[in-house]
Amino acid sequence: MTSAFTGLLAYPITPLGDSGEVDLGALEGLVARAVDAGVDGVVVLATSGAGVSFDHAERDAVVRVAVAAAEGTPVHVGVAGESVHLVVARARAARDAGAGGLVLPPFAYLPLDGAEVRALYARVAATVPGLPVCFYNKPVQLGFDVSPALLGALAADGSVAAVKDPASLPARPGGRVAELRARAQALAVGLSGDAALLGGAEPADAWHTGLAALAPAEYVAVRRARAAGTDDGGAAATAQAWLLQAAHAVAATGRPVTALHALAGLLGTRTAPPRDGLVPLTPNDEAALRMVVAQRP
């Protein structure tokens, strides 16, 4: 499948200075290194990038710096907002700053039902025609799990071109990717969740991952080996084992964005904790991340 949302999509953190300001130089470095390693796209200001914590001017600067650093590799932008008005404004701003696509969860101040979700995506698609939109499904966080039928309707409407779906949920049986494809054959089906992706998730058109922005060379090697069917115990297997260790350490903190910021610092990208990281990592969590970095192949 050829789509703006296929392959390995890296979700960088938004690095911060000591006073909480956006460190655009550090962001530029993260994006450039990911692109140089061979990722297929970059997504800024989504969950890993803590996009809802930045104002219009900060968001605009982040997108423009990322687009410049990517040098032609697609840069997609998370445009979540607690109101349709805010989502539409962010979609326009992202388009004007050079975004290659949008990543949008069905998020609002009050929970949305199916009809409201369909109206939201139709409104965004009409506002920025020609800019592909990826449906960011976050059922655990938002309490809304998009059905294959609704995704099929959104694809038929032309409102979405792709979906980012959890690679694993406790109550969800296997075969989800095939079911989504059956409902909307033109939809690029992507999966998220590092531990599940690295541990053998169903084949999908895309992997969406924050960890790939911090360790892009390793993640590119794993994704390419998986796509080629050559994961045979060589360098890609070594990279996969280390990435799985990192993914489990990040997940174990219970504060994944804060953990990604901490991991970024240990891997050479200086950053303060995220603005929404009100509770710091425990000493045990920090020690586990340090151990992961020390064991990097």
Rank of each mutant, 00 (worst) to 15 (best):
D40V: 02
G41T: 02
V42M: 10
V43K: 00
V43A: 14
V43E: 11
V44K: 06
V44T: 12
A46I: 00
T47N: 13
T47D: 13
S48F: 14
G49R: 08
G49M: 05
G49D: 12
G49V: 07
A50G: 11
A50C: 12
G51S: 05
G51E: 03
G51I: 03
G51M: 00
V52G: 00
V52M: 15
V52Q: 14
S53Q: 14
F54K: 02
F54V: 03
F54W: 04
F54E: 02
D55W: 03
D55A: 08
H56A: 15
A57Q: 14
A57G: 05
E58M: 06
E58K: 01
E58T: 08
E58Y: 06
E58N: 01
E58R: 06
D60F: 04
A61H: 08
V62N: 07
V62L: 03
V63W: 10
V63E: 10
V63A: 08
R64K: 13
R64N: 05
V65W: 01
A66G: 07
V67C: 03
V67R: 03
A70R: 05
A70C: 10
A70M: 04
E71D: 14
G72V: 01
T73F: 00
T73Q: 01
P74G: 11
P74R: 09
V75Y: 04
V75C: 01
H76F: 15
H76Y: 13
V77Y: 10
V77R: 09
G78E: 02
V79Y: 05
A80H: 01
A80C: 00
A80T: 02
A80M: 07
A80L: 00
G81F: 04
E82F: 14
V84M: 13
H85W: 12
H85D: 15
H85K: 14
L86D: 15
L86C: 01
L86N: 06
V88R: 15
V88M: 09
V88W: 09
V88D: 10
V88E: 13
A89I: 01
R90Q: 14
R90H: 12
R90F: 03
A91N: 05
A91M: 08
A91H: 08
R92S: 05
R92A: 04
A93F: 07
A93Y: 06
A94D: 07
R95G: 05
R95I: 11
R95N: 08
R95D: 10
D96F: 05
D96G: 02
D96P: 03
D96K: 06
A97K: 09
A97L: 06
G98C: 07
A99Y: 12
A99H: 13
A99E: 12
G100V: 08
G101M: 12
G101D: 12
L102H: 11
L102D: 10
L102K: 11
L102M: 10
V103W: 09
L104K: 12
P105Y: 05
P105D: 04
P105I: 07
P106M: 08
P106Y: 11
P106F: 08
F107Y: 15
F107I: 11
F107W: 14
A108T: 01
A108P: 05
Y109G: 10
Y109M: 13
P111Q: 09
P111F: 06
P111T: 09
P111I: 08
L112N: 03
L112K: 07
D113V: 07
